[in-house]
């Protein structure tokens, strides 16, 4: 890509120390910082063919393009995050001029500094919990007295009565299931929260998004002091032992850039 006058500026993140931009040479992305009073904006030049308002809209409809560029956005921020604290920006934050970026740093100077100071030495981790329905149902049959009782009744009933009892059983399992899932996920969340500075519950994502065969039952993000990561992982290991045979599947990822914990309006006390 030629760096022409018309090229646009892509903003990845804001930091308070200068990152080593040579790390990115092999990826083909030229990253560079601009500085304003103690804060750096980490940028790269992008082509209007991809990132002008109109073209970006078109490209966002193309999943292949989205995947490539979204992974690149994440990769750049994660690379920088290895050495310094970052404030990650949303994908596709584009400026026309460097003056525009400098204004951003100027206007939010204190907010950015406060947020970075707040995030120093902390890591974001994600936890998604899924539920294997069959496994859960099996465990309910064994463990829940109500379900167990009705099962017994069915085996000792005639055909007609058994039919209605089965219907009743299915309804019961459905209610007990949600009760149990709530109990298990709440317990998991509360236990993990004890090792964390902040905890957040996000939307449960549908299968079309997760591409998993199990239903998602909890989607949470945690902000953890880096000194307590081991404790966090131990709790997670405990939860796996406790809940795996009840059908829960724990999917933990991290450390992430603190996307979930860098709210400017909340933390930007002037």
């Amino acid at each position: 890509m030629n760096v022409t006058e018309e090229s646009l500026i892509y903003l990845y993140c804001v930091t308070k120390a200068k990152p080593d931009c040579s790390d990115f040479e092999e990826t083909g992305i030229k990253i560079y910082p601009i500085y304003f009073q103690g804060t750096y904006a980490i940028l790269s030049r992008v082509s209007p063919e991809e990132f002008s308002e109109e073209n970006l809209k078109k490209n966002l409809a193309n999943m292949e393009w989205v995947e490539k560029n979204v992974r690149q956005h994440e990769k750049v921020i994660e690379e920088i995050m290895k050495d310094i604290t970052v404030i990650p920006f949303k994908f596709g934050t584009i400026f026309k001029t460097e003056d525009g970026v400098e204004n951003l740093l100027k206007e939010n100077n204190l907010k950015f500094k406060n947020v970075i100071a707040d995030l120093e030495g902390k890591e974001e981790w994600g936890l998604k919990v899924y539920c294997d329905s069959e496994k859960l149902n099996d465990s309910l049959k064994k463990e829940d007295e109500r379900v167990e009782g009705i099962e017994k009744e069915i085996t000792s009933s005639g055909k007609g009565k058994a039919y209605f009892l089965k219907k009743k059983k299915n309804e019961l399992i459905k209610n007990v299931r949600n009760e149990k899932i709530s109990e298990y996920t709440q317990d998991s969340f509360e236990r993990i929260k004890r090792a964390c500075l902040e905890a957040k519950i996000n939307k449960i994502l549908p299968k079309e998004v997760t591409e998993k065969k199990e239903d998602m039952v909890l989607n949470a993000a945690f902000l953890i002091n880096e000194k307590r990561i081991k404790e966090f992982k131990n709790i997670l290991a405990y939860l796996k032992t406790k809940y795996t045979n009840k059908g829960l599947v724990f999917d933990c990822t991290g450390p992430w850039p603190p996307y979930n914990f860098c709210n400017l309006s909340e933390k930007g006390k002037v």
């Binding site: 646009l8 308002e53 949303k90 994908f91 026309k96 939010n108 860098c262």
Partner: peptide, 10 residues
Amino acid sequence: GIVIAGDIKI
């Protein structure tokens, strides 16, 4: 992630 309107808003 931080949402600050850049020059291009989507």
